[in-house]
């Protein structure tokens, strides 16, 4: 098997012509991104490290970050966002993994139907998710109506609690999660599982010893994409979540739009970006590692 190069792995040096061609090929999207987003973003990052000094000058300082991390309210919002990310991702994995395993190996009409159900939320924008949530799980919503109809007490609604955004984000994130996990399962083949079964392994042992180790990178990918999505989410936490603690999305918007504290809003934006960048690098790193491994290890 030939080496399948990854974006991060080095391949032998090539001629001058073939060094210019790829640069030409990537030029348009790279320049577009540089011009409209990366350059202004870099400027914004630099501005957060400049604070007014003596005599109208600006000096380099980490004061903005010290202010953010020294303020318990801001830190609370930050950890709340991390909490939401962790919980949402865990729930997504607990629901998504069995579904993905099922979709990977089962065949027929039922799995096809299950698959289209799993995919549907991809086509429902957050605003409608929020709207449907309030009508269904909100106070005196459909679930309450059914409970009332059969003589049960009303449920404790997750609307306006930290669980509101979690449920909304799980709903919203299920399609992508299942797709990512399905990708990891591409590496789990029948012979591997059969071999394990031949030596008498149960389904739990197969999951722990055969399936999960081969999915490490796709689990990391799921995590990094979720961080990206949840840190930038606005509509669901804003409409479904509690007033406090806030999530970073609505918090940044409020700092920027309502409090008019542009410097602080920018700092919050950079912190959010840094977290996403960290997990984004994890994504690139994990596919690189996965490819190298599958290229080297070859057939499983």
């Amino acid at each position: 098997m030939h080496e399948a190069a990854s974006p991060l792995s080095r391949t032998p040096a090539v001629s001058a012509r073939s060094r210019v061609l790829p640069l030409l090929l990537v030029a348009t999207p790279v320049l577009l991104a540089l011009w409209l987003v990366i350059w202004p973003a870099a400027e914004a990052v630099i501005l957060t490290f400049l604070v007014p000094g003596e005599g109208g000058t600006e000096v380099w300082s980490t004061a903005n970050y010290a202010r953010f991390f020294g303020d318990s309210y801001s830190v609370n919002n930050f950890t709340n966002t991390l909490w939401t990310t962790a919980v949402t991702t865990t729930i997504l994995l607990v629901i998504g993994l069995p579904l993905a395993i099922y979709l990977r190996f089962a065949k027929g009409q039922l799995p096809a139907t299950v698959q289209s159900l799993v995919m549907f939320p991809m086509f429902v924008p957050s605003i409608i998710v929020a709207y449907a949530f309030i009508r269904t799980l909100g106070p005196n919503g459909t679930v309450d109506i059914f409970l009332h109809a059969v003589g049960l007490p009303r449920m404790r609604t997750p609307y306006l609690t930290p669980w509101g955004p979690v449920i909304g984000l799980v709903w919203d994130g299920l399609p992508l999660t299942v797709l990512l996990l399905l990708s990891g399962l591409g590496n789990v083949t029948r012979p591997a599982v059969d071999a394990a079964r031949d030596v008498g392994a149960g389904w739990l042992a197969i999951l722990v010893y055969i399936i999960l180790p081969r999915m490490r990178s796709s689990l990391l990918v799921t995590l990094s994409f979720n961080v990206l999505g949840i840190f930038s989410s606005f509509t669901l936490p804003y409409l479904l979540g509690p007033a406090a603690p806030e999530m970073m999305g609505p918090f940044m918007q409020r700092t920027f739009g309502d409090l008019q504290d542009v410097g602080m809003a920018r700092t919050q934006a950079v912190i959010t970006f840094a977290v996403c960048l960290l997990f984004g690098a994890l994504y690139v790193w994990s596919i690189a590692k996965g490819r190298t491994k599958s290229a080297a290890g070859g057939k499983s």
Binding site: Y73, N76, A243, A244, P245, E246, R254, D258, L259, Q260
Partner: peptide, 15 residues
Amino acid sequence: WDAAINDGWYRTVAP
């Protein structure tokens, strides 16, 4: 006053 009331409320009442 607006910013003071809103942010004050978020910090002291909402949590």
